[in-house]
Design a binder for these strands. Structure first.
Lengths: 161, 161
DNA sequence: AGCTCTATGTATAAACT
DNA sequence: TAGTTTATACATAGAGC
């Protein structure tokens, strides 16, 4: 009953699948605990041969809930929110111009990373998509990256003038 | 030295941060072990208050490596790849039309989830962006969702005819 | 802020059902 | 395929530096 398992690919198919099932379950639990204990949001994505599609936690429905909320902002609420943000930004800029620039840089890094991780998933999609869909995906990615880049450049320009 | 920790938000700031740091480290290790032992790809994204940006595993550079590869496809390689995909799809369709439909449905769910998680991050960005950037984000998200939806509809239409 | 120590809780490989 | 058991490895809260 020793465990002493060498940290390497398990060549035994059945043992590997059992380990996968067990460890995946534990991993989900750990993620859930971390999120609960520390009040953060976390998700994990696993691409395995045991399933034809990536597995995602937390549930897509939970993620969808957040975005539904985001998309359901009325125009009024948007305006109100923007005013709040404006005040916040003015205060922040007054306090520290450099810090704001740093934040924007961070945001760009994150945005980029997320886009990239999205691309990673897209690449895994490839095996189940047709040529037209493939082209669409590539186009979307490039367009998105250009869009974000120009947005950040715009922010930088406004910031330095 | 008991651990008897209740599974709930830790109100003590310093204790929470310590726990976060420790558990995050372990979580990364677990993900790494799962990936190594079972030969799969996995990543995790954590949105915490302790960092201004989400933290991503594996490293953004690793993700970026994949995406760079993806973007550097020459037109020729793209064409070759697409042919392979077409063969694959034809084979799959011949084998089981329903299974393909199911796969596409799964893909759509995953794609949607990823877009949604991206939106989730965008929402976290809000506090550091100005009103114009906010509008841009909202516009991008809506556009992206519409684009994907229509793409899936297109796939469905082609599939059912 | 991050590290060590240590008691104890937790995860899990292997075996069995 | 999935649950149960058990011995052992691993994770970690709390305390101290």
């Amino acid at each position: 009953m020793r465990r002493r398992v060498k940290l390497a690919f398990m060549v035994n198919d059945s043992a590997r699948k059992i380990t996968y099932t067990k460890r995946k379950k534990s991993l989900i639990k750990k993620i859930d605990e971390l999120a609960t204990l520390c009040g953060i949001e976390a998700c994990a994505i696993v691409y395995s041969d045991f399933h034809s599609e990536p597995e995602i936690w937390p549930s897509p429905w939970e993620v969808q809930r957040v975005v539904t909320k985001f998309r359901s902002y009325s125009d009024f609420e948007k305006g109100k929110k923007m005013l709040n943000q404006e005040s916040f930004l003015i205060q922040r800029i007054g306090k520290s111009r450099e810090q704001l620039a740093k934040l924007e840089k961070h945001n760009w890094e994150v945005e980029k990373s997320l886009i990239l991780s999205q691309c990673l998933v897209k690449e895994n999609f490839i095996d189940t998509l047709n040529p037209n869909a493939l082209n669409d995906l590539a186009f979307d990615i490039n367009e998105m990256l250009e869009k974000i880049t120009s947005k950040v450049n715009e922010l930088d320009t406004n910031e330095t003038t």
